[in-house]
């Protein structure tokens, strides 16, 4: 499954597509919510490596508005819980990820994204 923590680390890699190729936009998705035990340390440790704006906007596109626009200076338990939910518990099982720049669509089927390009699209 594609979780938002995974999505935060992917970008379009089609030929010549080097700018504005992140974050990919979810399209026609079917989502499953799966509870997972919260581990605050894990979330806190990865926090500095997240592209915050991309994460917040993507979560909002998927209907989750729990995260603040700006990354807060002080993180409390409620914030970490909301972040945990967004990163780990939203599972995109079907749909596609579309590049905001070149429009290339990467399909997701049975939770597995297909990031392959055809020969002429490879940079």
């Amino acid at each position: 499954m594609v979780r938002l923590i995974t999505h935060n680390l992917l970008a379009c890699h089609a030929k010549g597509c080097t700018q504005n190729n992140f974050p990919l936009q979810f399209k026609d998705v079917s989502i499953e919510l799966k509870e997972q035990e919260v581990n605050s340390e894990f979330v806190k440790n990865f926090l500095p490596r997240l592209e915050w704006k991309a994460l917040v906007n993507t979560a909002r596109q998927l209907g989750d508005t729990s995260l603040p626009e700006e990354l807060p200076d002080m993180v409390d338990d409620d914030f970490l819980k909301a972040l945990h939910h967004v990163l780990f518990e939203i599972h995109v099982e079907e749909g596609a990820m579309v590049c905001p720049n070149c429009g290339h669509s990467y399909p997701i089927s049975n939770g597995i994204p297909n990031m392959l390009l055809s020969e002429h699209e490879i940079g």
Binding site: L9, A11, C12, H13, N39, H84, N114, M115, L116
Partner: peptide, 23 residues
């Protein structure tokens, strides 16, 4: 015994081509 959050994603991809640089 999954007691901790982890994330595993299998992706159909050539090498690491769609993973952002230096990650």
């Amino acid at each position: 015994h999954e007691t901790h959050p982890f994330t595993f994603t299998a992706m159909q991809m050539n090498l690491t081509s769609a993973v952002r640089s230096n990650k």
